[in-house]
């Protein structure tokens, strides 16, 4: 089964915006993959003039919140890093139990990469991005910058939502059939960057090295 990957446009966010941005995006994606009976729940974003839709599934909502918390925790430990959250949908295939492998195999059929560039220090950020400005009144300038930037983020967030909508409508053939959905949505997982590295690939590579090292020594 082919796995469709959607790389969402990178968003420049400030720390306090992470949660709302992720809520918007993740819930929007999941809503499109919740093909069971759904009573949509409209949610007005707390930060943006955006209304997004939740599936109304408490479990799902809880899980997303947890993941967002984790992610924010990670961001706090790794400031000023580009970071990515991956939302993957998979199918569960029962596999013949072989020696050590699990019986259950996950077949990923879709991955969403949410890219965030977290500006940890808004002040420095704004001053960096506006070299040309003569900062006579830092307070007001910063405020203006922030509001401008916030508005820009809102626009970008909308664009991302549209990107999701487009992707979801363009790529439909890879979606597995929905005979017996246990939950509202397809099985999914949300992965955040590991504690040591911002890039998944690098992390995996490192892990392989680390695990491989001892055995090589012995």
């Amino acid at each position: 089964m082919n796995c469709e990957v959607c790389n969402l446009k990178e968003l420049e966010v400030e720390h306090f915006e992470i949660r709302e941005v992720l809520r918007c995006i993740l819930h929007t994606i999941v809503f499109h993959r919740a093909l069971g009976l759904v009573r949509p729940k409209d949610v007005d974003s707390e930060l943006f003039e955006i209304t997004y839709v939740q599936t109304g599934d408490a479990e799902l909502e809880k899980k997303i919140e947890e993941k967002i918390d984790q992610f924010i925790g990670w961001v706090e430990k790794h400031p000023n890093k580009k970071s990515q959250i991956c939302l993957s949908f998979y199918e569960v295939k029962n596999k013949q139990a072989t020696w050590f492998s699990n019986k259950i195999e996950r077949l990923y059929w879709e991955q969403w990469h949410v890219n965030l560039n977290v500006a940890q220090h808004p002040k420095t950020h704004s001053s960096k991005s506006h070299h040309s400005k003569v900062v006579v009144d830092p307070g007001e300038n910063v405020f203006e910058d922030r509001s401008v930037r916030h508005a820009a983020l809102e626009t970008s967030l909308r664009e991302v939502l549209f990107q999701i909508i487009k992707f979801v409508n363009e790529k439909k053939d890879h979606i597995p059939s929905i005979p017996n959905l246990e939950g509202v949505a397809f099985p999914y997982e949300i992965t955040i960057p590991s504690s040591s590295d911002s890039s998944f690939g690098m992390d995996m590579f490192k892990r392989m090295l680390q695990t491989g090292h001892p055995s090589m020594l012995s």
Binding site: T28, A34, L161, V168
Partner: peptide
Amino acid sequence: RSLYLTVRI
């Protein structure tokens, strides 16, 4: 679902 969302955006 997309329509539902779009209407709100």
